[in-house]
Computed example of a mutant assay.
Amino acid sequence: MRVLVVEPECRPEVKEIDDSLSAMQEIVGGYIQAVHLDDLDDSVVLVCNEEGKFMNLPANRGLRDKNGQMYDIVCGTFFLCGVPPDSDHFTGLTPEQIERYRERFYTPEMFWGMDGHIVCLPLEVD
């Protein structure tokens, strides 16, 4: 299935992976967790390492609500894939979904704690 893989400090990359739990776990480096992105398409989920924060994986991208306010940070490599309604299986992304999410997660981000707040800055990469 065709997914969009997002690694820390890198631009998103389209990859073909097997539709298997082991292939998904290999990408995220452990147990998987599917996260619905509230402000975006309900037929797409972000799949990350369930224990990424506890494992001190590197901060990757901020998740934002429809107003652009950051509500969480994904740690470690994650990927985006399709999730049809009323199904317990993931599917590949459509070309339109790939472009939408490639644009959304295109710029890598860096995070700092400052005065009790988290500051997020874009990271320029080649």
Rank of each mutant, 00 (worst) to 15 (best):
F111N: 00
A59C: 06
G92I: 02
V3F: 00
C81H: 04
V3Q: 03
M70A: 13
E99S: 10
M70Y: 15
K53L: 11
G82R: 10
S87R: 04
V125L: 00
K66V: 12
L46K: 01
E13D: 13
L4W: 05
H117G: 06
G30L: 05
L63S: 10
V5A: 03
F90A: 08
F111S: 07
D42S: 14
Q97F: 02
N56H: 15
R104H: 15
P8A: 12
M114R: 12
I118S: 02
E109D: 02
I32H: 00
L63P: 06
L46S: 07
M110K: 15
W112T: 10
D19M: 12
G76A: 05
E7G: 00
R104P: 02
L4M: 03
F78H: 06
F79A: 01
D19G: 08
V45N: 09
M1A: 13
I118E: 02
I27N: 04
E13K: 14
G68Y: 07
D86N: 08
P58M: 11
V74G: 03
N60G: 01
E9M: 11
L57V: 09
G52P: 04
C81Y: 04
G68L: 04
A23L: 03
D86T: 03
D88V: 11
S22C: 02
G92E: 12
H89C: 13
S43V: 10
N49R: 09
D115M: 06
P122N: 04
